[in-house]
Design a protein around this nucleic acid. Sequence first.
DNA 1: AGTTTTAATTAAAACGTTTAACTAACTATG
DNA 2: CATAGTTAGTTAAACGTTTTAATTAAAACT
Lengths: 340, 340
Amino acid sequence: MTPTIKDVAKKANVSIATVSLVIHNHERISPETRLRVNRAIKELDYHPSRSARGLASKKSGNIGFIVTEDHFLRSEPFYTRIFLGTEFEARQNEYYILLTIIPADFKKGDKLPRCVLEHNVDGIIIAGKVPEDIINHLVEYDIPMAFVDYYPPSENFPVVLIDNFSGGHQATQHLLNLGHKNIGFIAGDIQHPSIRDRFQGYKMALEDANIEFDAGKCITDEDYPARENGYNAAKRLWENNKDITAVFSCNDAMAIGVMQYFKDAGIKIPEDVSIIGFDDVEADLSLDPPLCTISVPKIEMGIEVMRLINDVLKDRTKSAKKVLVPVEIVHRKSTAQVKH
Amino acid sequence: MTPTIKDVAKKANVSIATVSLVIHNHERISPETRLRVNRAIKELDYHPSRSARGLASKKSGNIGFIVTEDHFLRSEPFYTRIFLGTEFEARQNEYYILLTIIPADFKKGDKLPRCVLEHNVDGIIIAGKVPEDIINHLVEYDIPMAFVDYYPPSENFPVVLIDNFSGGHQATQHLLNLGHKNIGFIAGDIQHPSIRDRFQGYKMALEDANIEFDAGKCITDEDYPARENGYNAAKRLWENNKDITAVFSCNDAMAIGVMQYFKDAGIKIPEDVSIIGFDDVEADLSLDPPLCTISVPKIEMGIEVMRLINDVLKDRTKSAKKVLVPVEIVHRKSTAQVKH
DNA sequence: AGTTTTAATTAAAACGTTTAACTAACTATG
DNA sequence: CATAGTTAGTTAAACGTTTTAATTAAAACT
């Protein structure tokens, strides 16, 4: 069988306690003993059993990654990439990530994820908007939590957010720089804090340019951010505003739908209408023309949130840090100077 | 603190062994006792500790999902979706998946993934081609393994494979049906068993149609399947074969590059050249025209391989099952009747 | 030399389960 | 009625660590 701590102890002629201390780099171990034990560990190719460790130390070595099913699947390239980022960083910190997809309609009495109930995670990362109820339920377990791309109102946790305001501002500013004055705005769930901030950025950029904000040019009531809703939003936008020369679509999935609508309507991009998105997903590059958009560092967000939770796990008194990750515009062919 | 099995035992007036037996649905428990224990479990909201279970039963409740870094990132939407499939099915079977990304150049002496060394997985799923060395190393641990989308030569394991031969045949047949006779073939790593099978399907379809196979119309030596290599392959193909009217690109990433080349060369799709891909990734829909391709049920593959490993875990004498998942052509605008 | 400090190591309990072996109380059998 | 068999449940060891308190040995003071 695979060697246990006992085998190492025997081989190094010490007690198992000493072996354990060596493994944890405890200071009060003489250099000679340390050497002897380490040699034994290497020779036997010993690796402590995760379960035994977990039981004795009450640390599972796992981090739960919670995301709702519709977020994960609907905007798949987005949260999967954040997940990948946490995964990368987790490896550095000797953690494993337990991906946990919860239904979007989690209610008060519902069962928490199994990994939480079974004490199989040391901390939790919550990605994207989740029902308040689950957060409230989770805090009762006083298990460290960190958020990414969403932040529950009225709570104080470490969090990684996109600099949405800046993104909205940059996007709009870019269109303004190209001479556009009639800029439509399209979004899914305007209740979502991220979207609200992008909207604020849009408004602020207009204000800075002394252009009056026109609510009639803003479609913000589509159900969720998907291509078909982008299509519909563009249709409604265009039918009521033949004067617009540019559209800022708050996310790329909808932007793709927007492009499709204009194509179907025989309106040329970017000659007749400029379009800019938000997210920078893979599909943008395959579009014709490729979509100009605000690029969000998804992998980095995952890395960053993993670091946050790791900090808390190292020192639970640590205060809740908030990180705003910067976004940047990527110039592609879907925008152009306004025609006169 | 959270309740333990002892608390349940006390509350139900039985020994902890009885509680354990009830949890595992052991037969030799009277209905009354069972009821009493279950009630206590519910009242206390008791959930067995994963670590303790793991230690006592030598089952971690985890499955390792191994994939090489370049596979995972390069063809991201592909293996991530397989991963998602395993994840979905794992939840049904009360397992968690530990995603483990290994370097593509794993060598003989390299360290195995931590989850294996620490006995933190009960079984392993290997997705995509991995170095032989790691497989050889892994078998020494006699831990159940199952493969998906790759199968090591000279081994006998449960495996889920795409019906690549049929896919290659269907794709080619579709082009033949449209009247094409000069059909180019483009692939990345022709050493890869999957690609080889697609190639066989292509050849066989030609043979069935009494069209002589022409190796000059096959580009199979690009380094890896990516857009830029598809672009280059198309360039080389076209420069030497101005007579081709259709291209079967063995995977969508390359197909996108192929389309780009033809566009740049002023050749119209599908009017001048029909293109069909293989995989059916998200980006295909954003292309202009949308890419006709062979659709691979990625999520289902993940589900299927998880079932396989689960079967083995339930009964380790089970013999190695092999599953060929069917593929189907999805008709989109990138192919058309050949011009005369 | 005797006492106190300090450094290094160990003994042993604890963590929360599973499970093989055992027991006590019935039930059936000849 | 003694014996064997069955049923329902219990005892206790085991799983492989961590960690606290205790122990020992050596060094440093009076």
